[in-house]
């Protein structure tokens, strides 16, 4: 057992953060070129290494900008699925999921940047190269190029196993985005504390502030180890769903705590604290919502007791 990042993995994480700051440091539209550059650094490794590496990259990117993190997560997941199924397409691909390959997909990030779509539906994996995305305007991840897709003509590129793998990867990478949001909440809280100190106050000595910060750190770390574990566990549905429940809950709670530490002055309409709360709430709603993820976990815990 080695539940610690190796030196190479830690270096990849550090480098991902530095690159994310360069590419996505200013809040604004996320470009397909920037996303493609990050994705290219992840694919090509073996499955487990790529899954963990992607989780590290996504967390650090989302920490800088959640929209960019979500877009990278989605496009890289599509690239990994294409690699895993031995398929390819030109340009940037995004992954979408839906009940039926003939219906409109659920909303997903990077859809409006993509040239092709990997579709998870009907217990199989499909490639849609001629479809177009339709933008979705949500009150969070506003720069993530969110959209839905009506796949149209598709090619089947994977069966049930690949479908399960794809669903697990999607949940896992969404969890990595949420862990990035937990880390961003910690950054916002620390910045607020530093600003208070610069103004001659000592918020760092307030127990209310210290306890709030400790809870942000603890929730973030719990979610982070669950993401890392799930990535090393080949992103099974169950492990990924657990990671996402922890991370989404942690992100929402951490955003609220960070806003509390920052106080009223830190909650301007487009402030980091305000954006964190909008972005983190989506983590509990995307990918089927927390209830769907809890259902996956419960089904594994109670295999002999069907849902009512």
């Amino acid at each position: 057992m080695n539940p610690l990042l190796s030196a190479e993995e830690q270096a990849a994480r550090d480098s991902a953060r530095a690159r994310a700051l360069e590419l996505f440091g200013g809040v604004g539209a996320v470009s397909a070129e920037a996303v493609a550059e990050v994705v290219a650094g992840v694919v090509g490794n073996d499955d487990v290494a790529a899954t963990l590496l992607l989780a590290l990259v996504v967390e650090e990117t989302a920490r800088v900008d959640a929209s960019a993190g979500a877009a990278v997560a989605n496009a890289a997941t599509a690239a990994l699925l294409l690699q895993h199924t031995g398929s390819s397409t030109t340009g940037l691909a995004a992954v979408v999921a839906g009940d039926s390959v003939e219906g409109v997909s659920e909303p997903a990030a990077a859809v409006m940047l993509a040239d092709a779509y990997v579709v998870l539906a009907d217990n199989a994996v499909w490639l849609a190269e001629a479809a177009d995305g339709s933008p979705v305007d949500l009150d969070g991840l506003r720069n993530a190029a969110m959209g839905t897709v009506l796949p149209g003509a598709v090619t089947r590129i994977g069966g049930a196993d690949e479908y399960e793998r794809g669903r697990g990867l999607m949940l896992l990478q969404q969890a990595a985005v949420a862990v990035g949001l937990c880390a961003a909440a910690q950054d916002v809280a620390l910045a607020a504390i530093a600003a208070g100190k610069a103004a001659g106050e000592r918020p760092d000595r307030s127990q209310a502030v210290q306890w709030g910060l400790a809870d942000i750190v603890t929730d973030g770390e719990a979610a982070r180890v669950a993401v890392w574990h799930a990535a090393c566990d080949e992103a099974t549905d169950n492990a990924a769903a657990m990671a996402l429940v922890l991370a989404a809950d942690g992100a929402v709670a951490s955003a609220r705590r960070a806003a509390q530490i920052g106080g009223i002055d830190g909650l301007g309409a487009d402030s980091a604290a305000s954006r964190l709360q909008r972005d983190s709430k989506l983590m509990e709603l995307l990918g089927g919502g927390t209830e769907a993820h809890l259902a996956i976990i419960a089904d594994a815990l109670l295999p002999d007791v069907p849902r009512a």
Binding site: P3, A222, A226, H229, L246, L294, A295, I297, L301, R307
Partner: peptide, 17 residues
């Protein structure tokens, strides 16, 4: 079922930590 799932999830994280 959902409550049981949350319990399992929190225990899982505690073990990893």
């Amino acid at each position: 079922r959902h409550q049981l799932a949350r319990m399992a999830t929190e225990i899982h994280a505690g073990r990893l930590l």
